[in-house]
Nucleic acid binder design. Structure first.
Lengths: 114, 114
DNA sequence: CATTTAGTTCACCACATGGCAAACAATGAT
DNA sequence: ATCATTGTTTGCCATGTGGTGAACTAAATG
């Protein structure tokens, strides 16, 4: 249940943008060149490349240039790191839920908004 | 496997800061007033309140003021939303892994770096 | 009432982010 | 050799972020 700060910062930050999440989703189905990745979006290439750089520096993706085309692929490890942190937090919460079962039951019933 | 943009943006962004993640971790063990939450950190109250506001507007926590003390508690739903998105992505990846078992095996062996 | 305590608001600052346009490689195709 | 394709770099700009210090409100406490 560490707070292993340095990598989670960049990973969560990278995920906090719809364009970048869409790129992640796309790459989950297999590698792709930059142009194909950028196609669905209405932004220019320079802006899109910035997103790719954020993703790469966060360790969520890896890119490799062969000829004039740069191919991007997913890097599942960092995704798993983020997921692990979240599930650890949930485990922490459930431990507290066991301690204060009745109180938490009350919290949940008033938490069904939105 | 939606990209349900609006809430994930703010949730992931809120999680992209070590101070805010530490607050989340602390609140997982039960509610706490602002002063107690701010104590472990070396930043001033105004800065800390900004973090709390980010957390609250992201829906990750809820706060309630009683008398002169504002009590903060966790809101597990948004945490679960983020965790769900991540696990959906992983499922997507595993589907691709089934399709291209051999290729992905190759990818994993060259992904043991860092 | 006077004072500490807890939180809030305000003005300000340095810096990162996300976007653009435009010019510049470098490779593949004709 | 020419030319289209695919990135890449460079300025530039508006906005958001994370921090500060100082002034202020409101509730317990003596």
């Amino acid at each position: 249940m560490e707070n292993c700060t340095p990598s989670l910062d960049t990973a969560f930050h990278a995920l906090a943008d719809p364009t970048r999440r869409a790129v992640i989703s796309r790459l989950m189905t297999g590698p792709a060149p930059v142009k194909e990745l950028a196609e669905p979006f209405s932004i220019g290439l320079p802006a899109f490349l910035k997103h790719l750089r954020v993703l790469e520096e966060s360790g969520l993706i890896a890119t490799e240039k062969s000829g004039r085309v740069r191919t991007c692929r997913i890097r599942p490890k960092r995704l798993l790191d983020a997921e692990t942190w979240l599930s650890e937090q949930r485990a922490l919460w459930q431990a507290g839920a066991d301690r204060l079962a009745a109180y938490v039951e009350n919290q949940m019933t008033e938490d069904n908004d939105e």
